[in-house]
Design a protein around this nucleic acid. Structure first.
Length: 580
DNA sequence: GCCGTTTTCGGCCCGACTGTTTTCAGTCG
């Protein structure tokens, strides 16, 4: 997330917490408004400063849950670096709510009591109070509370925050398959942010259908993956996993499947939107079904019917972020999103010749096994010395190998000749024009001098695209999740060049990249540009990353027609040759 | 503080689990 966005979301969450302590009845909904806005901002990833720069207060007010009051507070923060109302409130409660709230079981009310009675304002002062056993003396707290809080602090300190989808999804699938194999459940599925294919995951949500919930919960809480049990009941159990995240299991009657999976998939703001529509129609929607006021069940078995009874089209999970999809579903204009099976090729892969782990032959076999009809090998170029980047001579040699292997394979799959050519500091490309013109697929990327100004970086990349030699711009923002911020670049200006020069923008499927991300893609909807969903595979297993890139493309509302590597080989060759 | 096919006031999603309680508030998702 963009840094400013996190700061503003934290401030809104802090304000919500402070309002929560004071407990006036009218503030109940004000609290919810601040929390909802914070959630919206946390999910944005596009910089609020950019949005504000584009359209001012009005652009901010278009964001769901942000009205005039909050838009003005965001403006104040962007301009002055502070929000006066917040600083006033901080004088009364100088507490780090955001940090303290991360402790399981600790919310605004309890934090307020701990502050007023014991002066607790951050994790350190809480630890001190716990060690002196002062917490158990407070009304509403006991010895057990001290134990739970101490455990919560340990978990918080060992937690790494949100984990990569690419790390968590395989773990979730393993848990699901064990639960399904137990014979205790009729069905087990993944819900939550994993089903929505968010790039990072805060916890794992699993839904099981069973008529003997207690047995399922016993099996689940006893699994090898589990480190400790946070709470356990017949319909809901939460555990902490050894991989460093929590996992919720909800067990539900098979008849309620549709209502349950809809509810547990979220997002929270999407559900609030859908439930509000239900209320307006005089219904009630919960995880057990859609009901009339009288309590009569209208629908519960599948998601499609529930959305239909609310006058909506079914909404793919990846779109359920309260970003306009509810209105679209009411108008029956939900796009037919791209699917993994639509991919016919992969335009960005590496081999042992540079920093890949496998030979060309091994990569070809793996691409074929992954169901691809073609793939481009795009090794690094000479300037990238750490990756043993290749010069013109080595590319000539390597391409001879491709010719002979292509002959041998007879198109199963077809290997395209390419390079991931460095865009140098001055915007020139790291191979000769003559060499690049010989290639089927030129992927260009920035791998150095990340700290340029907004204008310099934008000009650098546009200069490269404007050569007419580039087929695809790889990982266009350069961000690496939890490691490196995106470099400063004007994607709209880049999109102008891409549109003019028939350059596809990459959705890099590497789990730590996923670049462009969903919000980048959505922000470029006004441009007539194509995308390329690529693995950036460095070994044979990395073709499996493509599902994460497809998830991101779906979160960006893309269809098959927006993505070049859904085309059959001859058609994609025409695109690469820049012929319409 | 947000929001509008009940539109500028008067509503605002809904249920499970826990600990400390004797009927519920706080927390979470």
């Amino acid at each position: 997330m963009e840094l400013k966005n996190k700061e503003i979301a934290d401030i809104f969450n802090n304000i919500a917490a402070m309002l929560g302590i004071d407990n006036s009845p009218s503030s109940k909904f004000e609290i919810r408004a601040y929390q909802r806005a914070a959630l919206t901002i946390e999910g944005l990833q596009e910089d609020l400063g950019l949005i504000y720069g584009r359209g001012g207060i009005d652009a901010l007010m278009e964001l769901p849950g942000i009205g005039k009051g909050l838009a003005q507070k965001i403006e104040e923060y962007l301009k002055t670096g502070r929000i006066r109302k917040y600083e006033e409130m901080r004088k009364k409660y100088p507490i780090d709510f955001v940090e303290l709230s991360k402790i399981e079981g600790l919310g605004a009310k309890k934090i307020g009591v701990l502050y007023k009675r014991l002066g607790v304002k951050d994790v350190e002062t809480l630890k001190d109070a716990l060690e002196k056993h002062k917490v158990r003396e407070l009304a509403g707290f006991g010895a057990k509370s001290e134990e739970v809080l101490a455990d919560g602090i340990k978990i918080l300190e060992s937690s790494k925050g949100r984990l990569l989808l690419g790390d968590v999804l395989p773990e979730a699938e393993s848990i699901v398959s064990k639960l399904a194999g137990s014979g205790l459940a009729e069905g087990v599925v993944i819900a939550g942010s994993i089903r929505r294919m968010r790039e990072t995951v805060g916890d794992i949500d699993i839904l099981a259908l069973s008529k003997s919930p207690e047995k399922v919960m016993d099996f689940f809480s006893g699994m090898d993956e589990v480190k400790s049990i946070i709470s356990k009941g017949p319909t809901k159990t939460t555990v902490w996993l050894k991989i460093g995240t929590s996992c919720d299991l909800r067990v539900i009657e098979p008849d309620s499947f549709g209502a349950a999976i809809q509810y547990f998939t979220g997002s929270k703001n999407h559900n609030i939107g859908v439930r509000t529509i239900a209320v307006k129609k005089g219904y009630k929607l919960n995880e057990y079904g859609l009901f009339e006021k009288s309590g009569r069940l209208i629908s519960s078995l599948n998601e499609e019917t529930i959305y239909a009874k609310l006058g909506m089209q079914w909404i793919p999970p990846e779109m359920r972020e309260d970003r306009g999809e509810i209105k679209l579903a009411q108008e029956h204009n939900i796009p037919d999103l791209i699917q993994l099976k639509d991919l016919m090729g992969d335009m960005h892969t590496h081999t042992k010749e540079t920093d890949g782990m496998n030979t060309l032959e091994e990569m070809a076999a793996a691409a074929g096994a992954a169901g691809l009809a073609y793939f481009a090998t795009t090794n690094h170029t000479k300037s990238l010395r750490v990756a043993k980047g290749m010069d013109e001579k080595r590319f000539e040699e390597f391409f001879k190998k491709i010719d002979s292997l292509n002959e041998k394979l007879g198109g199963r799959p077809t290997i395209l000749k390419g390079a991931e050519v460095d865009i140098l500091k001055d915007g020139s490309l790291d191979l000769s024009r003559a060499m690049l013109e010989k290639m089927d697929c030129v992927v260009a990327a920035v791998h150095s001098n990340f700290n340029m100004s907004y204008d310099e970086m934008t000009a650098r990349v546009r200069k490269a695209l404007d050569t007419g030699l580039v087929s695809i711009l790889a990982h266009p923002t350069g961000r690496v999740i939890n490691q490196r911020e995106p470099y400063k670049i004007d994607l709209e200006k880049v999109a102008e060049s891409a549109e003019r020069g028939m350059v596809a923008l990459e959705i890099n499927s590497y789990p730590s990249r996923l670049d462009l991300n969903d919000t980048n893609i959505l922000s470029l909807r006004g441009y007539n540009i194509m995308f390329s969903v690529d693995s950036d595979g460095h070994n044979v297993s990395h073709f499996g990353f493509l599902r994460y890139g497809i998830g991101t493309a779906r979160r960006g509302w893309l269809t098959k027609a927006n993505v070049i590597n859904t085309m059959p080989l001859e058609k994609v060759r025409r695109f690469l040759a820049k012929k319409k």
